[in-house]
């Protein structure tokens, strides 16, 4: 009797135990879920806070540019939202500074920079990546070493060189030093190295010349890297400030980054509204371009850092 009683006790207690452990495990699962939700919320909070940090100057510039009534410009946080929205200041940008001329200059200079950088980098990267020839390592190391030099120091000699070439105050003078650079050659070399040797051998057996191999085999396969290089070069060329500001002296030949800056810190500095409208208009073209191409960007850079 007592035995059965104790057995019952054991049974019931073990049943109680299992119920408790089930409850505990459910609690644990719940708390783990809660923990994960909390971590996720924390992560998003951090991401949003950081997005505010990177974007707030532009939000403010946009709001101020859109406010036809500038009286709230220095009233925070009111000025992050436009007062009496309108495009008046944007229209005045076009009438009061040669904005379209600057835009055209930037476009022409960026276009030729991209074409030249891509062609020169692709041509130089192919032998460095796939051909055996004496001096290959030395040339590659010399090119990469230039990444460690402060390029601003080149300004003085390059200024003198361009003076001798008669290229001062010209489009070409403003962009030609940027045509050949270590970054582009390195990026394309990394991309070309990932292409299987079989493809090249097959083309050679078919009697293709090296130029045909480069153009018909290597270039199409490396399209993502070429896209990344083009985007990267566009952003750099569009935003280049220091060198064009030294080389180009005629106002009508200035690119946006220089022309708008000179105007904004000079004659137009008095009207913050006009300044912000001009800034929004200057940033907009790159922003739109980047929005459409950014998905190629990271995938194309992939090989460069491996």
């Amino acid at each position: 009797m007592s035995a059965s009683h104790s057995a019952e006790k054991v049974l019931s207690s073990s049943a109680k135990d299992s119920a408790a452990s089930k409850k505990r495990s459910r609690n644990m699962a719940n708390s783990r879920k809660a923990q994960r939700a909390l971590a996720l919320a924390g992560q998003y909070a951090g991401l949003i806070a950081f997005a505010i940090f990177t974007c707030f100057p532009f939000v403010w510039a946009l709001a101020v540019g859109l406010s036809t009534d500038p009286s709230n410009t220095w009233l925070f946080p009111r000025s992050f939202w436009p007062t009496e929205p309108g495009l008046m200041w944007f229209e005045r940008v076009f009438t009061e500074m040669p904005f379209l001329k600057y835009l055209k200059n930037s476009t022409v200079m960026s276009f030729w920079t991209i074409v030249s950088v891509v062609v020169i980098s692709v041509l130089a990267a192919y032998p460095l990546a796939r051909l055996k020839f004496p001096g290959r390592n030395l040339i590659f190391v010399a090119i990469i070493a230039t990444l460690m030099l402060p390029s601003e120091v080149n300004i003085i000699p390059n200024f003198i060189t361009l003076k001798h070439l008669g290229l001062l105050d010209s489009y070409w003078g403003a962009i030609i030093p940027n045509f050949a650079g270590a970054f582009g050659i390195f990026l394309m070399k990394q991309a070309f190295e990932q292409i299987p040797q079989d493809l090249i051998d097959a083309a050679r057996v078919d009697g293709a010349t090296e130029l045909q191999i480069l153009w018909r085999v290597m270039v199409p396969v490396s399209a993502p890297s070429i896209a990344a290089l083009s985007i990267f070069t566009l952003v750099n060329a569009w935003n280049d400030y220091l060198w064009p500001s030294i080389v180009i002296t005629t106002r009508d030949k200035l690119p946006l980054a220089v022309g708008v800056f000179n105007d904004l810190t000079g004659p137009f500095a008095v009207s913050t509204s006009l300044v912000m409208a001009a800034i929004v208009l200057t940033v907009l073209p790159v922003l739109i371009f980047f929005a459409f191409t950014q998905r190629y960007f990271i995938s194309g850079l992939d090989g460069a850092v491996k």
């Binding site: 062609v119 020169i120 980098s121 041509l123 130089a124 192919y126 032998p127 460095l128 051909l131 055996k132 020839f133 004496p134 290959r136 040339i139 010399a142 090119i143 230039t146 030099l149 390029s151 120091v153 080149n154 003085i156 000699p157 390059n158 003198i160 060189t161 030609i176 030093p177 045509f179 050949a180 650079g181 050659i185 090296e210 480069l214």
Partner: peptide, 28 residues
């Protein structure tokens, strides 16, 4: 023959870097 073609392909980059990157270091 690869050597010739390699240097031919490298020529534009080397000439431009020579003028605007390597020469300035020496000239400086």
């Amino acid at each position: 023959s690869y050597t010739a073609i390699a240097y031919l392909f490298l020529a534009p980059a080397l000439i431009l870097m020579g003028i605007f990157t390597f020469w300035p270091v020496g000239y400086n």
